[in-house]
Amino acid sequence: MSIVLFVGIVEVMTLISVRNLTKSYRIAKKSPGLVGTIKHLVARKTIVIEAVKSLDFQIEQGEIVGFIGPNGAGKTTTLKMLCGLIHPTGGDVLVGGFEPRLRDTEFLHKIALIMGQKQQLIWDLPPIDTLKVNAAVYGLSNSEANRRIKELGDMLQLEEELTRPVRKLSLGERMKAELLASLLHRPSILFLDEPTLGLDLNAQIRVREFLINYNKIYGATILLSSHYMSDITSLCSRVLVIDKGTIYYDGSLEDLTRRLSPYRGVKIKFSKPYLKNEFTGFGQVIEYSEYFAQILIKRSELTSKLYQLLKSFSVIDLEVSDPPIEELIGEFYQEIKTS
């Protein structure tokens, strides 16, 4: 009995490469009043909105990369350009050796896009019907399709749910069925746009575990955007921070934390109530109740601020820690904005 280990011969290679990618939309602008309306009719004035300006990054095979940034940062637009749904205004994109915009059949067999707020499942019918449709479209034989449905269904812990009408499924079950439908053709490149949106904690964890497994078993490359930092921390070894269509950070999550860690979280318990604005001079108050506060304090000022705190308030308990990642990222966004 011989077992061939493919893992050993997988070379590290660039799977997604993006150079100078830009996307700008033209939006018609109309000034009010009759004159404006007629002008609008005759000669439209358009303004150009740059959703993505000059992105550069590369992703290797098998990586799980997190794509984060505030709303309207250009994440979804970028993901859709990588899938070939939106045509770039300029720059080069190469995904798995293909130019996505051309939507080559072979390319489409390789990728999947999963969106948290859009669904492909047929609403009135059980998920199994959508799966059958997808199997036919991707040219899978019945036996092969059934085998994959079983396999992925086991990984996702989906069984009888597949034969219940979609409208009767819970949000979490629906997302899992959605994943199954999108991955039936076993894509090697996954784009996920907010895959855990609106899911409860349990379902979020399930989805994450599944993605990690899928990545391990099939060696798939995953690029995901999410608002939940826990998605990023538990899945991604590398993050891209994007805002206003520009990349502000590309690297490991730990490095980012370290870079942002001039701030430290200070949790304080008091013996008597204080007003929130009494802490304004110390740093950003991220948690507050009458007898408790958590403040982000710059590391360089930590000792002096702590001394002042102890002096001016009646402190019972004090704890210094790294602040939660959400707050750090929030701070980072603020910094980007002001810079």
Binding site: K30, G33, L34, T37
Partner: peptide, 13 residues
């Protein structure tokens, strides 16, 4: 009248 007409016209467009 003017503003009504123009806003209706804009809506039509």
């Amino acid at each position: 009248t003017y503003s009504l007409l123009t806003s209706q016209y804009a809506l039509m467009l």
